[in-house]
Design a protein around this nucleic acid. Structure first.
Lengths: 211, 211
DNA sequence: TGTGATCGTGACGGGGCGTCATCAAGCTCC
DNA sequence: GGAGCTTGATGACGCCCCGTCACGATCACA
């Protein structure tokens, strides 16, 4: 039995120190609370105090991590983009041509937002607006990735030069808008929506003016 | 000279009573002040108090006209849509086919937003977001008008049945997004942007899946 | 001119905002 | 294991914005 005395205290603890751990725990707690609060009250109605109350932390603690409600929202958006990026890359690698890439990417996005909304747009007041995510680093990365995928594939298809910024913006706008509308319909039909969006964009690209 | 005595006091004053006049004047003053404040501070940073101070009215007076900052913003958006609607209708009447309607409508929209921004997005902080206008009555009317124009023209062109809601949303999204991007470029090229957006949409419509 | 209706007014209580002095707890070095 | 240093959690505080409401001035109408 004497050995057991050693057991609860392994000498090498690889975990970071307690300070570091509570820091990430607090950061995560704030993000989780914010997701809930935004989901329940809507973004506009939510206050920093609501988020703070939900975490049980002191008000000052919140400001050690984020400067404002907007910054928390950006962090959530950034987190979403970070989780979506691998899915996008997967489509980009697996695709054989432009059409399959576009279809795959849009479907992946629609499935992603459908899943996301289940988990946190839980009980949003009707007509409530969630602001479009700002340009966080991860959002910009997604934009660039889409842009580069377009560039590569259009070059390979010896397509005429087009205004890539306009094109990327327009495609993302279509995906966002159709995605939103899709979520309002019952049942949620990600495949039908993706089919629509992909065909619209594909047809459009073929008809673009060259620079 | 005796006649002059009658001059300053014409018996029949067709203008509405003073009460009514100050009412519309106040309403307008609030809208004007809001436009300025939103332009200078950005929508998020602006407070109801900022708007009130700019008008010189008492705080209570503001609430006789609008319930909140959001409501003022909606009123401004509604006003914009109301002013844009005749331009849209003009295109719809003058157009001979789908393509000319779409081109005309998009160009009209781009010229409209280019003019608007000159007049009140004067000095917006970089990266600042103006929220997308909510569904005000006039906004909904614009949406419906576009939708009906699509319906009519697609039927006339014996085009296959398509998902009109998705299509309308997607087109408006493209116009909005390209319009935004267009405003960030110097010089602002409404024709080039309209050409791009119109071609993209036209090509896309031709390729849509039928219901 | 008198009377009632209609707002403009600004003070007020409620509450969210961001800060900061304080102090407990973790970390480091001996 | 303990002394001294560092970090960051705490919550009270002052500031300002919020929306309301009792009051009074002004207008409409007879």
């Amino acid at each position: 039995m004497s050995n057991i005395a050693y057991f609860p205290k392994p000498h090498v603890d690889q975990r970071p120190g307690k300070r570091e751990r509570t820091k990430t725990a607090n950061r995560q707690a704030i993000l989780d609370a914010a997701r809930e609060v935004f989901g329940e009250l809507g973004y506009d109605a939510a206050t920093v105090r609501d988020i703070i109350r939900r975490t049980g932390l002191a008000s000052g603690t919140f400001y050690n991590y984020y400067k404002s409600k907007e910054e928390v929202f950006d962090a959530l958006a950034d987190d979403g983009a970070r989780r979506f990026r691998p899915l996008l890359r997967e489509q980009s690698e697996k695709a054989t041509d432009f059409e399959s890439f576009l279809r795959g990417a849009i479907l992946a996005y629609f499935n992603f937002v459908a899943t996301e909304q289940e988990s946190w747009r839980v009980n949003r007041p009707a007509g409530e607006q969630i602001p479009h995510a700002r340009a966080t680093p991860e959002m910009a990365a997604v934009f660039d990735e889409v842009r580069e995928a377009f560039a590569k594939v259009l070059e390979h298809d010896h397509a005429p030069k087009v205004d890539l910024d306009y094109l990327t913006s327009a495609c993302i706008a279509v995906a966002r808008e159709i995605g939103d509308k899709m979520l309002d319909r019952r049942p949620v039909d990600t495949e039908g929506a993706a089919d629509f969006a992909a065909k619209l964009i594909l047809g459009g690209v073929a008809a673009l003016p060259q620079l």
